[in-house]
Design a protein around this nucleic acid. Structure first.
Length: 593
DNA sequence: CGTGCCACGA
């Protein structure tokens, strides 16, 4: 404690009489520390907390600031941020002393309510009450800025802390800044900051490393993540924790690198690190997304056996898994069983079910779910609206989609990028390419219109409506704008050119892909082959098949059928049969044709 | 008594 702080401490605590101090020693039989601690642990609901506060604030002599802070902390842990703030304000209004701890709790609450601005205003309260803002308070504010995506201001505050020596940044300050950088995709700069903190004598810890490892994993750079992981463990001798492993496992799952997932789970076991709810959820989710619902169910069973209680997130993934396979009845049954498991479905859980019905084109049931969630007091959010709008488009009810879009805005939900994509796609799929194009032009020059996914939707839509010239124009736009076409763009264009019989152009684009760092995938080869065969042009067929073989690609039913037709008419040489056989996946062999 | 890292939906 600095001299200034000591002075303030004495001034506040030993001013006038000593009764509060003495009282805490012996006059109040209920105020010894053990009793009090258990009292705060018992506060598990908001009402108890508020009642206790009321009693405390009227108690004579008043309880120490620590007791108040413990209560603030308990309410904050229950995520009743507004309540904590109101308690803090009452403390200020009634003259109960507040200190760095109370202020940081209050600021954290502002930040969590996305009112970081008010958090900064509380700094003024700090100064008035001679509470010196310390590193914890600044860390909390920095985190608030990151939370609100105010990365520039976060960086400015971070630099200010250092340059103006407002406080000595600690490992939390650095890892908070690192998190902000990662959030905006600046992994390299984040790693730079990791090195910088080390140089400044602030040793990075498992949190600092895990933050970057997680970000790399989320960006599919799992191998880079493992490099950093190795550095942390072997060079810095920092032990990974369950969170570090969970991030890596998540990254591996997303890439379908199951062998390595198993390896990591084994490694955790060896390190005696137990899986937590998140780790299990990731496994459940990954299995569901791969269509292996039985494996996901097995993981849930293991959880229960091990005494873990699957939560809404876990069951939400399972609901998605059922829906993905069109098993909406099973999804609904699981959904209905949640309440008896003590879980109240939230907006996300409802949206999963909603999505299931929509994707199964059961629009009436989807609407029932949509209304049910409103009846249960849940306000549909942007994702729920987007899901339902997409559902309407999928069954061709464009008018209802439009109505819901208007209702969504009337309810105060501003359409986001995804809404835009859904509407453009919906219009295109319902033969309203012109509508889609005018909406596209209406939005004009924006981030949205520089999104390759938007172009993919429009090019695909135009092409499928037979408006190939428009498709070409749009593709030309992509190039002019300097946008990087992705694999979907190329595949859509190649398909479009083949339908038009422009095989030379299709082949040209196919060759251009590799040069542009976007190598053709399985789909590209199949599309191009189909284009050749349907147009009865056979010169490149063997070469394409050979390349596919070299890349371990495979044929699908449609392409295979065209090849067989070609062989039966003698257009495709029989000598290719062996090669074709190698390219047929087992599943296709088993299917009787 | 206060600060930072991991999971679900369009």
């Amino acid at each position: 404690m600095s001299r200034k702080h000591l002075h303030a401490f004495i001034k506040f605590n030993f001013k006038g009489n000593f009764s509060p101090f003495l009282a805490s020693l012996h006059s109040n039989p209920f105020s010894n520390d053990d009793r009090r601690r258990s009292k705060f642990e018992k506060v598990t609901n908001l009402d108890d907390a508020l009642n206790l506060f009321d009693e405390m604030i009227h108690r004579q002599p008043p309880p120490s600031v620590i007791k108040f802070n413990q209560l603030l902390s308990a309410v904050t842990k229950m995520k009743h941020f507004s309540s904590t703030l109101s308690l803090f304000n009452q403390m200020c209004a009634t003259g109960v002393r507040v200190d760095e701890y109370s202020v940081s709790s209050a600021i954290k609450c502002c930040c969590n309510l996305f009112r970081t601005k008010d958090g900064f205003a509380l700094l003024g309260c700090c100064f008035r009450r001679r509470v010196g803002p310390n590193v914890v308070i600044f860390n909390t504010l920095l985190d608030g800025l990151v939370l609100e995506d105010r990365i520039i201001e976060a960086e400015r505050l971070f630099k200010k802390l250092i340059n103006h020596k407002l406080c000595e940044p600690n490992v939390v300050t650095f890892s908070t800044m690192i998190k902000g950088l990662c959030k905006f995709g600046n992994n390299d700069i984040a790693i730079g900051l990791l090195r910088l903190m080390d140089e400044r004598g602030c040793k990075p810890d498992v949190v600092a490393y895990s933050t970057i490892i997680d970000s790399l994993c989320k960006n599919k750079m799992v191998d880079d993540a493992f490099e950093l992981f190795k550095e942390m463990v072997f060079d810095k001798h920092i032990l990974p924790n369950v969170i570090t492993y969970t991030s890596l496992i998540h990254g591996l799952c997303n890439l379908g690198r199951w062998d390595e997932v198993a390896k990591m789970l084994k490694e955790m076991e060896n390190q005696r690190i137990s899986l937590d709810l998140q780790t299990y959820s990731i496994l459940v989710d990954a299995f569901c997304k791969e269509g292996m619902v039985d494996k996901a169910e097995a993981v849930v069973n293991i959880m229960v056996e091990r005494g873990e209680c699957p939560d809404l997130v876990t069951y939400g993934s399972l609901i998605d898994g059922y829906c993905l396979r069109g098993e909406t009845t099973k999804a609904r049954t699981l959904f209905d069983s949640l309440t008896s498991r003590g879980l109240i479905p939230d907006v996300i859980t409802y949206s999963s079910l909603l999505n299931g019905y929509c994707k199964s084109l059961k629009i009436e049931e989807a609407m029932l779910v949509f209304h049910e969630m409103t009846r249960k007091g849940l306000k549909p959010d942007i994702v729920a609206y987007n899901t339902m709008i997409q559902g309407f488009f999928m069954v061709g009810r464009c008018g209802d989609a439009r109505k819901l879009f208007d209702e969504m805005r009337a309810q105060g939900n501003a359409p986001n990028e995804c809404t835009y994509l859904i509407i453009l796609d919906g219009l295109c799929k319902n033969q309203q390419v012109e509508e889609a194009l005018s909406l596209f032009h209406l939005v004009g020059d924006s981030k949205l219109n520089s999104n390759i996914v938007v172009y993919n939707i429009l090019i695909d839509g135009a092409s499928n409506c037979g408006k190939h010239d428009i498709a070409m124009d749009l593709f030309h736009d992509v190039t002019v704008k300097g946008l990087q076409p992705d694999i979907r763009t190329y595949n859509i264009m190649i398909s479009c050119l083949c339908v038009e019989g422009l095989l030379k152009e299709a082949k040209h684009l196919f060759l251009k892909m590799d040069e542009s760092g976007c190598p053709p995938d399985n789909v590209t080869y199949r599309l191009l082959l189909q284009g050749y065969l349907k147009n009865k042009v056979y010169d490149d067929v063997e070469m394409l098949l050979q390349e596919m073989d070299g890349r371990s690609y495979s044929l699908d039913a449609a392409t295979l059928s065209l090849l067989i037709d070609g062989i039966s008419t003698g257009s495709v040489d029989r000598s290719m049969l062996k090669l074709i056989g190698r390219l047929v996946p087992k599943e296709l062999m088993d299917t009787p044709r």
